[in-house]
């Protein structure tokens, strides 16, 4: 019997959570909910105050919510991104978060009533100081650099890949297609997701990888390795904001509201830097880990509203695709 129970424990999700406590179901991206992301800390912290059971469901958050429609089991979604939220808003999936956004420490003003930022960073190319002595200091430098190889993510499948696409749009506007044509020969490969790109970079496959300005913090904090750095471009960097939202059809509205409070709490915010490797959205800079305070930051934040992003997405993807098909 014991081996059987053990097996059942390995296999049947939720079997152990059959207590009387209410369950708050939170949809999150894989990296967020995994053993090595912020998920476990958040789960423990929230469960300590809510008298409930917090259950993460990881995977593609928005496609899953759109697929499920009214049948969704989600109460809260976390890990969404500004560039794709318009469809969710139009589908009427989410309810107002009810939080005061005045105290947020974002580089842009934020007054959205549905999507609540919890952390942010900038898209950036990360390089290894020991292998690249003179990194490009602007997009123009990058386009002109010879002998430089980079790995990027596919904007059709990766949120960071889309951020780069919008970054190039923000810098080059009408000329973005031309810029991509000059960038394409330097692109070693385009990967499906961020992890594969970053893995190729750490294996030494490419000189630079599309990632975030906060990525070097991981190496500094967790590996005591300061050889990785983000190349800061004088054009400014595209802002990457991650969001949480309350599902309109939730059957746990009070718990969902409580979770929204928790997202902006000091405890939650303090966990973010060294688990999700981003800047917290509401925490005084003085309370950031030293490594984050020391990280160089871009002079300007480039950012499109969700309407602008959605309008740009298709034509930008198409000209990107054409640049690579030559």
């Amino acid at each position: 019997m014991r081996p059987f129970l053990l097996l059942a424990g390995l296999f049947l999700a939720g079997a152990a959570a059959a207590e009387d406590k209410p369950v708050l179901t939170v949809y999150a991206p894989d990296y967020f909910g995994s053993e090595w992301g912020p998920g476990p800390g958040i789960e423990a912290g929230f469960e300590a105050i809510c008298g409930c059971d917090l259950a993460f469901r990881t995977g593609d958050v928005l496609p899953r919510l759109l697929l499920e429609g009214d049948n969704t089991r989600a109460d809260v979604a976390i890990g969404l991104n500004t560039d794709v939220t318009l469809r969710a808003r139009e589908a009427g999936i989410f309810a107002p978060h009810g939080q005061d956004t005045a105290g947020l420490s974002l580089p842009v003003d934020w007054a959205d009533e549905t999507f609540l930022p919890f952390n942010w960073s900038y898209a950036a190319f990360v390089y290894d100081r020991t292998r690249l002595a003179a990194p490009p200091e602007s997009f123009a430098d990058l386009l002109e650099a010879e002998d430089l190889s980079i790995v990027i993510q596919d904007p059709r499948s990766s949120i960071s890949g889309l951020a780069l696409l919008l970054w190039v749009e923000a810098v080059y506007g009408e000329e973005a297609g031309r810029a991509w044509e000059r960038l394409a020969p330097k692109v070693l490969t385009v990967t499906q997701d961020w992890s594969t790109s970053y893995g190729l970079f750490t294996e030494g496959e490419a000189d630079m990888v599309l990632s975030f300005t906060t990525s070097p913090a991981y190496h500094i904090v967790a590996e005591e390795d300061d050889t990785k750095a983000a190349a800061i471009f004088e054009d400014g960097h595209y802002l990457f904001v991650e969001l949480a939202a309350k599902v309109a059809g939730t059957d746990q509205p009070e718990l969902a509201d409580l979770f929204m409070d928790y997202v902006l709490s000091r405890e939650f915010q303090a966990m973010i830097p060294t688990t999700n490797w981003s800047y917290p959205a509401r925490l005084d800079e003085a309370d950031w880990p030293q490594a984050f305070r020391d990280l160089p930051r871009p002079g300007a934040a480039l950012f499109f509203s969700e309407e602008e992003a959605e309008a740009l997405r298709r034509p930008a993807v198409e000209s990107w695709r054409r640049a690579f098909s030559r």
């Binding site: 894989d30 990296y31 053993e35 090595w36 998920g39 469901r57 899953r64 992890s195 893995g199």
Partner: peptide, 28 residues
């Protein structure tokens, strides 16, 4: 598994990807 995944019931290939996503390339 990608669509169904539950963080507590991951399979080994999924853990490889998750380790990579958490910057842990050596463990991956």
């Amino acid at each position: 598994i990608a669509l169904f995944a539950d963080p507590e019931f991951a399979t080994l290939p999924l853990q490889v990807y998750r380790l990579m996503a958490a910057y842990r390339m050596e463990e991956a």
